[in-house]
């Protein structure tokens, strides 16, 4: 009877052989798992394995400069970390950096998105010119801005001198407070475009008709912005904020290249602290304890993000 084997899944209820169809679906789902497996396995090997390794390592005394002395120490590394004023100082500085840089980048990103959302002549130029800084490696961006603030050949010094403003001949990186200025400017330069693009994509999903009917109802531009744009932009705002907050929490390249945490420890952040314990002190047990702490903080933020995505729907649901 069935001379031809049936190909394709969509003959529906008319299919004379429901069992064959079920096994066809089963084999498709088996192929599906096989396709997903390599990616998931690769990510697990490079991310989950180090995570577990860190947990084990954090309960041990393991210093590479003292080979053969490794032993189990329980929670000693955590105790040492939590009683180290430098750890808390770095954590505090990281927090302040997060708040300041994310606030500034968000404000600038929102303005940028609103500008680029409008139709004007130089629109393409603006879009291209903000995307280039985004694509430049963070370490190179930090180097660029460090040179920009250089006392001899930098632009900032040149401009301040030319305008006869105070601050010329200032060695920015020698001041515990002012050293943050180039750091934050470099971070903004590199990361604001990302926020702007996410917000722009959010803006483009708001139907124009809403604004028109609001205008007919007599709403001013500001009213429309506060009661239409911002609420409807909320999902994009949340996504951008959490992405940026997380990467600001882990800031490393900029600090390493621009100040190395100095002067003193005034620009040292928690990722730098961890890197130093691992790669300079070679104290891997202690470094692992700090890494576990950082991972926990990051995963809390990430969980919030995944929750938000799921609430909003999209292809994940």
């Amino acid at each position: 009877m069935a001379a031809k084997p049936q190909i394709g899944p969509s003959l529906g209820t008319a299919s004379p052989r429901p069992r064959r169809r079920r096994s066809y679906m089963a084999s498709r789902s088996r192929v599906g798992y096989l396709l997903v497996l390599p990616a998931v396995a690769a990510l697990a090997a490079i991310a989950i394995y180090p995570l577990i390794y860190n947990i084990v390592l954090s309960s041990r005394f393991d210093v590479l400069t003292e080979p053969g002395t490794g032993h189990f120490t329980g929670l000693a590394n955590y105790r040492q970390m939590l009683t180290d004023p430098n750890f808390w100082g770095d954590l505090g500085r990281t927090g302040i950096f997060m708040v300041i840089s994310v606030t500034l980048e968000f404000a600038a990103g929102l303005i940028l998105a609103l500008i680029v959302h409008r139709e004007f002549k130089a629109r393409g130029l603006v879009r291209a010119s903000i995307l280039i800084p985004w694509a430049i490696p963070t370490a190179v961006s930090a180097l660029l801005w460090k040179m920009f603030f250089d006392i001899r050949s930098g632009f900032v010094d040149f401009a301040l001198k030319a305008l006869h403003l105070p601050g010329a001949n200032l060695v920015w990186f020698n001041s515990p407070v002012l050293a943050w200025v180039p750091i934050i400017l470099s971070d903004m330069w590199k990361n604001t475009p990302f926020i702007a693009l996410l917000l722009l994509a959010g803006l483009q999903t708001i139907p124009q008709e809403i604004y028109e009917s609001a205008r007919i109802d007599g709403a001013t531009g500001w009213q429309a912005f506060w009661s239409i744009t911002l609420p409807l932009l909320r999902p994009a705002v949340m996504v951008a904020l959490i992405f940026r907050t997380l990467s600001a929490m882990l800031v490393f390249d900029t600090i390493f290249v621009m100040t190395g945490g100095g002067p003193g420890q005034s620009t040292e952040v928690v990722a730098y602290y961890d890197w130093y314990k691992y790669m300079v002190s070679l104290n891997f047990g202690f470094g692992a304890a700090v890494a576990v702490a950082i991972t926990v903080l990051a995963l809390i933020l990430a969980t919030v993000y995944v929750r938000l995505l799921r609430q909003r729907g999209g292809f994940m649901t």
């Binding site: 997903v36 990616a39 998931v40 990510l43 490079i46 991310a47 989950i48 394995y49 180090p50 995570l51 390794y53 860190n54 390592l57 997380l246 882990l250 490393f252 990722a271 961890d274 890197w275 691992y278 790669m279 891997f284 470094g287 692992a288 890494a291 576990v292 950082i294 991972t295 990051a298 995963l299 933020l301 990430a302 969980t303 993000y305 995944v306 995505l309 994940m316």
Partner: peptide, 23 residues
Amino acid sequence: ILGFILLVSFFPQIAMVGPLFLV
């Protein structure tokens, strides 16, 4: 699965440095 992949992209790079160095 998609959640896991997204979560992995949030794993702090710095936390992988030590274990990967040893491996």
